[in-house]
């Protein structure tokens, strides 16, 4: 079992908001051969198979922590979040969220958590967000005054003044998503479960969503469990990250540790004054791209010295510019997936 990376001693004095142990969930799926003949056979003699979605996952999350939950498509992120919200029942294993077993105390738990599923809007499409806010106030059992006070606060924090009375259908995706996140915070939850909140958003809208979530995390102490395919979301909001792949937990540690362990390569971009053939035939150095006036290479500084690489590049001509950088988080995550020999597009 992949145990939580933190030792028990580290967790002893901390308040745990999520405790997951050996969680497993699979779905029964009908398998069918292609074409009409396959469909005909499946009609009379269907074949079923169990598809594992989550396999023996265990982890802990501290109260008020911001935890990133990443993995390729079909890795089991959404299934795990849905189990933690009480939407799905696991096949085996245990989970506690804020002291509740989600699939047994779903209603009670929902008063204490907020959730946003980026692919499933919550606001009434034809009405302005203010009407949805009041309905959700009633759903969470808040009286009108309490709802109004909270709406005023959220409108202020999320800068929704100009959006509040515009029908949702007329809002941009980014504006709508800000309202979606705001409505999930209406009942002052202790924990926010966000499943791809930035899906489909442009960079400006993403930044605004990140800023407001970060504000609520810092000001109200709201814990955040975030899944996203955008490494920028994770980097901006989370101090700890869990990587899940093919239903299994493959990494659970701080963001710094993720970088330290996987930032094994340096990337160099170099430009030359003169035109010429560009290649650096040096063991341990990989040419990523090469042109007439420049090239991009990658190497592992633990096996090849930086000074050796620089002098090699210097010997190729007169350099006018050189940049040495770390690969971005996107590349690191890609490397982790690749190391686990998985197809990132596997559904």
């Amino acid at each position: 079992m992949p145990a939580p990376n933190k030792g028990k001693g580290v967790w002893r004095n901390k308040v745990v908001s999520i405790r997951v142990s050996r969680l497993t969930k699979s779905f029964r799926t009908r398998s069918k051969q292609e074409g009409l003949a396959g469909s005909w056979r499946a009609l009379w003699k269907p074949e079923w198979r169990q598809v594992p979605a989550v396999r023996d996952i265990s982890f802990l999350m501290e109260r008020g922590e911001a935890l990133g939950f990443i993995g390729p498509n079909g890795a089991g992120k959404s299934t795990t979040i849905k189990i933690l919200c009480g939407i799905l029942h696991p096949d085996s294993g245990t989970a506690e969220v804020l002291g509740h077993v989600p699939w047994q105390d779903r209603q009670q738990l929902c008063y204490e958590i907020g959730s946003v599923f980026g692919q499933r809007p919550q606001l009434w499409y034809h009405l302005p967000p203010v009407d949805s806010f009041h309905v959700y106030g009633a759903i969470y059992g808040l009286d009108r005054d309490a709802t109004r006070r909270r709406v005023d606060f959220l409108v202020d924090v999320f800068e929704l003044q100009h959006l509040l009375h515009t029908p949702v259908r007329k809002l941009s995706l980014g504006q709508r998503m800000r309202c979606e996140v705001a409505v999930s915070l209406l009942h002052a939850p202790k924990l926010l479960l966000l499943d791809e909140p930035s899906i489909g958003l442009d960079i400006v809208a993403k930044q605004r969503i990140r800023d407001t979530i970060r504000y609520m995390r810092d000001e109200e102490g709201v814990g955040v469990l975030l899944t996203s395919h955008d490494a920028g979301d994770i980097e901006a909001l989370c101090n700890r990250v869990i990587v899940i792949s093919d239903g299994q937990l493959i990494f659970d540690d701080t963001m710094d540790e993720l970088k330290r362990r996987h930032l094994t390569a340096k990337q160099v971009n170099v430009r030359y004054l003169e035109e010429g053939e560009r290649s650096l035939p040096m063991a341990g150095v990989e040419t990523v791209a090469a042109g007439r006036y420049g090239m991009q290479i990658r190497f592992d500084p633990r096996t090849v010295g930086v000074d050796a690489v620089i002098s090699g590049l210097n010997g190729l001509g007169s350099m006018v510019d050189i940049t040495i950088s770390d690969p971005d988080l996107e590349d690191i995550i890609g490397t982790i997936y690749a190391e686990n020999a998985l197809d990132p597009d596997a559904a």
């Binding site: 106030g137 009633a138 759903i139 059992g141 808040l142 309490a146």
Partner: peptide, 13 residues
């Protein structure tokens, strides 16, 4: 935060 657990939400819907 004080909460009402009745069926008032049905009226709101």
């Amino acid at each position: 935060m004080a909460r009402k657990r009745g069926l008032g939400f049905v009226g709101a819907l």
